[in-house]
Structures are given as C-alpha cells and as structure tokens.
Amino acid sequence: MTDAHKPVTEADLHAYVDGFLDEERRRAVELWMSEHPQEEAEVRQWQAQAAELQAAFSGYAQSSERDRMLLSTAATPSSPSPWRKTALIAASLTLFLSGTAVGVYGERLLASPVTIETATALDNLPGQSKTAYLVYASEKRHPVEVGADQQEHLVTWLGKRLDYKLVAPDLKGLGFSLVGGRLLPVNGKAGAMLMYQDTAGQRLTVLLGKNPENAETSFRFESTGSLETFYWIDGSIGYAVTGEVSRARLQQIAEECYRQFET
C-alpha cells in the first residue's frame, strides 16, 4: 500500500516496459502515467520498440544442424588454430552446397543473406524516386519518352518491361494530368516513371520498380527540403511518388495511385 504511493521513477518506467513490476506497482505506474501524458507517450514508444526487437530476433532462437559441429570443431584441444576455422568454413560450405544436409533452420539462416540484399535495394526506392524527379521534372523539352497522347502504347510498353499490368492512374480529380512516362533503371532493373502536372505546371513523378520478392509494406514518407516522397511496396512492385507539394496533398495523390494500381 505504501508501495503504491512511492514516487514513480524512471527505473519504474523501464521496469513497467520490461514487465518487472508486481500488479500493485504496475497499476500505480499506470495511474501516474495517466496524469503525465508526455512520459506515457515515451513509455508506449519503448514498449513498441521492445516488441519490434523481439519480433525481429526471436526467429533466430533455433537449433541448427550446425550446432553440434560448432561444438565438435571448437572442442578440439589446443586453443584456436587456423585449421579449425578452416575446417569450420569448409564444413559450412559443404552444408551450404548440399542443401539437403542443412536442417530446416540452418537452411533458413543460410538463405537469409539474399533477403538482406533485397532490403538494401528497397531502401533506395525513395532516393531513386527523388533523383528521377530532380532530373526529369525540371526538363523542358524531353521530360518523358512517350507522351500522354500515346497513353495506351506507354502503359503496354512499360508494363511489358516491368512484367506487370501497368495502368497510368487518373489523377484529374486531384488536378494533375498525365504528361507521359519513360523507362529507367530502378534497383538495377527496368523500371518505369510516370509524370503528371497540374495547370500551373507543377509536376510530380511516380516511380515503379521491380521488387525481388513479394512483400507488402505500409506507406512511408520522406522529405528532403521542399521535396516530398511517399513510397510503399505492394506485391512484386515498389512504388514511390515524389513532388514539391505539401505532405497532405501528396498523401492524397499516393493513396489515389495506390487505389488505381493493380497488384
């Protein structure tokens, strides 16, 4: 009872996040937080962080066929010698080459570097979109390769290169009409850029790039100076919309694009 009235310290807030408080103290901390919204917001952030960390690494707590080998190679008397490392490398290489020898978990661990590259490539999407915008939106004479007057040809051509049923979203309701599009490299593969502009000549670009594996992400936002970019991945395609418009406006545009793009 007296415990419940003890002042809440920062250590209590961490213990709350980490589940180290007893029921009574936990309630006391919750009551205190209800009167301290700023601290509560921070605590909720820490909780989300902890959950994210657990989700990100829990999958690694697995046995692998290599575990016993880890021990047998390390257990050889005499301290770390080069041959032991070599033996270990050779052994894991053998496992790597003979897929069947690798256990379910081992295989997954060995397979994951492929997905690492994927993440790095995806990470570039907003950057590539900004570059494309900066290069082409300011272009007076040749902003696009194929103009809106040949829209059907444009979407068929780019769609074929992306191996995807491309549509050019109709953004007229939001004040933007299609200028055209071009083929350009995204993540080292054929990608597409569509360009739109409003009656004042303000332009925005939509970048589409092939995503190495199916995924689905939430919308992300990035701003650099006055340039705003929205990006997301849906199925086999990564999308990024860039423009020099307000964040709220660009979100409307991105949502409209998302609605009209097929997956």
């Binding site: 989700a55 690494f57 978990y105 994927t118 993440a119």
Partner: peptide
C-alpha cells in the same frame, strides 16, 4: 548489409 530476420 542491413540484416533481415531469419523469420519474417
């Protein structure tokens, strides 16, 4: 490289 988890 930015690692991904073993289990997505």
């Amino acid at each position: 490289t930015l690692g991904l988890t073993a289990e997505d």
